[in-house]
Each structure stands twice: as C-alpha cells, then as structure tokens.
Design a protein around this nucleic acid. Structure first.
Lengths: 143, 143
DNA sequence: AGTATGGGTCAATATGGTTGACTATAAATT
DNA sequence: AATTTATAGTCAACCATATTGACCCATACT
C-alpha cells in the first residue's frame, strides 16, 4: 500500500508528466499543422534523421504502429522529397530511408523547438538534475 | 548555436521523453481497451477524481479539447455510472462532476499502474532525483 | 521448389478530434 | 423587465489517425 500523502506526491508527478509532454509536443505540432502534417511525420523525420539508412521495418518497430498506418505519411514525405527511399545493396528487399537536404532542414526546425526547451531547462536546473531526469526517464522507458 | 555533442545529449533526452511517455500510458491504455474506453476517459476520471465538483468548463480548460470532443466520452462515463453530474447550488448553470464509487475504483486501477511505476522509479533513484525530475517537468510545463 | 521476409496497397471500420450552428437554462447587466 | 452573457448540451459535416484482414510483388533463405 501507498500512503495517502505519498499518493498525492505521485499524483503531482502524473500531472507534471501529462502537462510537460503536452508542452513539449506543442512547438513541433504548430509548425507541422501549417504544412498539413502531423506528429507521425515528425517522428518519421526524427528517427530517419537519427539513423540514416533505417529500414521500413526498423521504423515500424520504433514507432510501434502498423505498416498501414505508417504508409500514408511516409509516402507523403517521399513525394514531398523530404525523405529518400533507396534499395539496400545488401538485401534488395530492404529500403533504406534517408532525409533529403530539405528533409534535414524541416527536421532541424521541428526538433529545434524541443532542443531549445530542454537546453533551457537543463541549463537552469544544472547538470546533476539533467542526469537524474535522464535516469528516471530511462528506467520508465524500460517498463 | 548548440554544439554537435550537446545536441546528441539533448536528442537522447527527446527520445527518452518519447519512449517513457509511451511506457507510462501503456498500463492504463490496456485496461481501458478491454472496456472499449480510451485515453480521454482516463483523463476525465483522473481530473474529476482529483478535483471533485469540477465543472465541465474547468475540465475543458484542463484537457484543452473542444466541448464537442469531450461530450461523447463524458456521456459514456455518465451512462456507465462512473461519473455523476449534479447541478451546482451556487450557480445552477454549472454541473459539478464527481466520481461514483465504481468510478473511483476504476480510476484507482488505471492510475494505480502509473503510481506504481513512479513509486518504483523514485524509490530506486532517490528523493533528490525525484525533486530534480519534478522541477524539470514543472519548468517544461510552463512553456 | 517452396517458404519466409520486406515492402506496399486496398477495403472496411473505429476513434478521436475539429468547426459551425443551434438550443435551453440560468445568471448578470443595463 | 429586457437584454446580454455564460454554462451546458447536441447535431452535422468533416478530417486525421489508427486498426485488422486480405492480398500482391520481389527477393532471400533452406
């Protein structure tokens, strides 16, 4: 059992998680909305940028959505020439995804708002707090 | 400008935020899915439980969705008798929302998974880390 | 040759959100 | 007392995002 007073502290944390995540996604969401894109587009751009040459299957595993759900936004990014799609030499079934120069620019803009937010907070709260935050988030991710 | 190496550290943080939030909402989502409910239902139950007597307008402000989007899930919770809806004595236009006993039980189950996750992490990482995490999340929320 | 894998697409369906328009009721203002 | 504003609720049209199931094609593996 968890004590009443302790529960209140944990409920505070739940709310902070909710509100901070919303604030964290707000910047990119606004930029995306102007171009008729959504959060999935950002995620694609983000992970393709992070790991150039990523396969479609890899991307599906990271995003944990069905390939039918991935297909439309991915096709859109391909036709907008923000993402490139090349046959892998090693295994010609596999498509290696990469950002184009303009894809890189958009990704940088989108992720830039989040990088700024984090840089500000970590600067204010200090290196030790940053470490503590990351360790907590790391452990939560593993659940 | 942000240095290349610093940017990598911040991108790590972005990913941790993404993955941990997904892990954090996974528990309640599973329980909800079994009853044909969604994340909004949890949010309603959560905030009504947190602030009994909350008005519909208050709820809209917290959730930041349109009243048309709130209406269906709220009606569902009312008809399932998980939430009660009483005219306020002070201002009879206002409906005061409260959880019923079974609403409280469901809310406790849903939020319980998150409380456990947080309690485990905070226990492992210590009180100082918990404070640091909360301060960072607080500052992020204010953006 | 036969099976498994990676990728793509279609259809049907569900959910969750939007905006706009409108109603009913109650409170506040003039 | 009449008008305006505020709270709540509902209908309709629309759109985005997701699901599952059924297929297909090309390539690789056994």
């Amino acid at each position: 059992m968890i004590k009443e007073s302790r529960e209140q502290q944990l409920r505070e944390a739940i709310e902070l998680f909710f509100f901070s995540y919303r604030a964290f996604t707000h910047g990119p969401d606004e930029i995306l909305a102007k171009r008729g894109l959504g959060r999935v587009h950002h995620r694609i751009l983000y992970f393709v940028g992070r790991q150039p040459g990523l396969s479609v299957n890899d991307l599906l595993r990271v995003l944990q959505i069905s390939k039918q759900a991935l297909n439309p936004p991915l096709r859109q990014l391909l036709s907008m020439e923000l993402v490139r799609n090349e046959q892998s030499k090693a295994d010609r079934r596999v498509r290696e995804l990469r950002l184009t120069p303009s894809g890189k620019r958009l990704e940088a803009r989108l992720t830039g708002t989040q990088i700024l937010q984090l840089e500000n907070v970590f600067q204010d709260q200090g290196k030790k707090s940053e470490k503590a935050w990351k360790q907590i988030m790391q452990q939560l991710s593993e659940d």
